[in-house]
Each structure stands twice: as structure tokens, then as C-alpha cells.
Amino acid sequence: MMAHKFLTGAVMALAFATGSALAADLPSLKAPPAYLPPPPPAWTGFHAGLNAGGAWNASTGTSFASAPFLINGAGNVPWAASAAITGTGSVSTNGAGFIGGGQLGYDVQFNGGFLAGIETDIQGVAGSNGAAAVVTLAPAPAPGLNLLTSVASGKSLDFLGTARGRLGYLVTPTLLAYATGGLAYGQATSTTSFFQHVPNDFSGFLLLGASQGRFSQTRVGWTAGGGLEWMFWPQWSAKIEYLFYDLGAAAYPVAITTDWQLTNLLFANATQARTRFDGHVVRVGLNYHFNWGAAPVVAKY
């Protein structure tokens, strides 16, 4: 009986071992882990967003200059010269305001941490008008007489747009430091009012210049700057940026000052204003990164 139990157990153990060995030789039906290629760079692709900040003038003055273009007789040269000198100077037009708008761009990440791209934006500018006035009272060539000159001027930028290249480096995988530069354009406006008179002039004489000149034009120039952009959430980034823009200088006619003795024109002076449209922009922005065109994830078996 004892020998029978031992023989039965030995047979069962041998069968179990043989079955396990055969099962180990069979092909496995479990699929190998899927092949996942590395994700595309988070910065490559289109982005769009909004921005807001402040803008202020770099050139903080509007100059005005008067010069004779007609003098009737040598005796009127001192009067023409005095009127021209007192009709020349500058007015402070140091304006600042709020700027806000949107941007659209495309970036390519390459060589690991480098990034190159393009970006275009357009912003409205509110409260940017800088205006001031100056009044002078100077002695005239004739004793006891004075030349009174009053000039008021202002300038503003109604909107500002740019089309720029960007070149940067990823300080960390989520923090980009970049430089940027390219084309700038905007609607620039400047107005200057001019008044010149001799309040206590002799009877029969009239020296008077009173008019306003205005310049308004869409100007094209350049811009350059830099910034930092932080990818704080997948496909979302925040940035802070500084830009300097220069839309060039503009000159425009303002007034004609004439001096009469009854019906006899003694001299005539022309006054012109000149200003430059340039400034600084500091703004923050929020971008959404679309990452269109990224390579799909493919599993291989």
C-alpha cells in the first residue's frame, strides 16, 4: 500500500514538471510594449494670444522753426529776423498710454534648446497724446514794442503693429529667452498751433501769424527688443516683452506770419514743425500653442 502511494505521487510530480516545461516552450500570446517615439518639441508650431502693457514716447519734444521767405526793403530785415527768432523753439510732447492687442506666430525648436520663429501683432494705443504749450514775450526792434509768440503742440500714436523674427534659447525646457526685431507700423498724428503778434504796435501796422498745422499718416519703420516666455501649462505660455520702435520723423507747415503797413506787405515768415515718432513698449502676454503638424504617436507590435 505504501509503495502504491509513493508510485502515484512520483507519476503526478513528473507529469506536472513535464507540462510546465512544455508550456514554457510555447510562444507567448502577450503583445510586447508599444513603441512610443519621443514627443515633439513643445515649442514647435503656431501660437496665438493677447497682450497688454504700456507705451511712452522716446523723443519727447516737437520743434518749430520760423524763417523769412519775403522781405520788402532792408529796413524790415530786423523785424523779420526778430519774428523768426521768437518763432523758433520746442514744445514738450512727452506722452504715455495703455497699449493692448493680439499676436499670432510660428516657432520651430531645433538643436535641442534653440528656437526660431516669426510673429506679427497689432495693438491699439489709448491715452498716448502728449501736449503742451509755450508763450514768449521778447523785445521788438522798435523801442517799447514786444513780440508775443504762443505755440501749442501735441502728438499721438493711434495704433502700433509689428512683423518680427524671433531667435531664442531654452534656458530650461519651459523657459525661453529671446531677441526679436523687424518691421513696425502705426498711425501717427501731430498738431501744432502758432500765434504771433505785437500787442502794442503802432497805429497802421499789423504783425500777425495765427494758424494750425496737422500731420496724420500711417508710418512704417523698425522695431527691436527681447523678452522671456514661460510654458506654465501644456500648450499655454506667458511672456513679458520690451520693444523699441521708430517710425521716423515728420515735418509739416504750421503758419505764415505777415507784417503790414496799411496795404504794404513788409515781410512774411513761414513756420514749420518737426517731430519724431518713436518710443518704448513694455507688455505682458498670454499665448496658446496649437502644435499643429506634430508627428502622430504610432504603436508597433
Rank of each mutant, 00 (worst) to 15 (best):
Ala67Asn: 10
Gly226Ala: 02
Ala251Pro: 00
Glu119Tyr: 04
Gly95Glu: 10
Ala23Tyr: 04
Ser237His: 03
His197Tyr: 13
Asn57Arg: 12
Ala65Gly: 01
Ile240Gly: 10
Ala224Phe: 07
Val298His: 10
Val151Arg: 00
Thr174Val: 11
Glu119Arg: 14
Thr62Trp: 03
Ala251His: 04
Leu137Trp: 05
Leu176Gly: 03
Gly293Gln: 01
Leu167Arg: 01
Leu262Pro: 01
Phe277Ile: 08
Gly279Gln: 05
Thr44Ala: 07
Leu175His: 00
Ala116Ile: 15
Gly130Phe: 07
Thr257Ser: 11
Ala224Gln: 04
Pro32Met: 11
Glu229Val: 03
Gly9Glu: 15
Phe98Gln: 01
Leu286Ser: 04
Ser190Asp: 13
Leu104Ser: 03
Gly101Ser: 09
Val198Asp: 11
Thr93Lys: 06
Gly182Glu: 09
Thr60Ser: 12
Leu22Glu: 12
Leu265Cys: 11
Ile256Tyr: 02
Ala116Asn: 03
Gly87Cys: 08
Arg274Asn: 11
Phe114Glu: 02
Trp236Ala: 05
Asn129Thr: 15
Arg276Asn: 11
Ala58Glu: 12
Pro141Thr: 09
Trp79Arg: 05
Phe46Lys: 03
Val254Asp: 01
Glu241His: 01
Thr8Ile: 13
Leu286Gly: 02
Ala23Pro: 06
Leu262Ile: 13
Gly144Thr: 10
Gly181Ala: 12
Val297Cys: 01
Ala10Phe: 08
Asn269Gly: 09
Ala67His: 08
Leu7Lys: 09
Asn287Cys: 10
Ala96His: 14
Ser153Val: 06
Val297Ala: 11
Leu265Gly: 12
Ala23Ser: 13
Tyr178His: 04
Phe110Thr: 11
Val125Asn: 10
Ile71Cys: 10
Ala138Gly: 07
Leu14Cys: 10
Phe232Thr: 01
Ala126Trp: 15
Ala84Leu: 08
Met12Ala: 13
Leu137Arg: 09
Asn111Glu: 09
Val77Arg: 06
Gly248Ser: 04
Tyr185Val: 10
Gln103Lys: 11
Asn129Glu: 15
Ser128Pro: 09
Gly101Asp: 06
Ala163Pro: 01
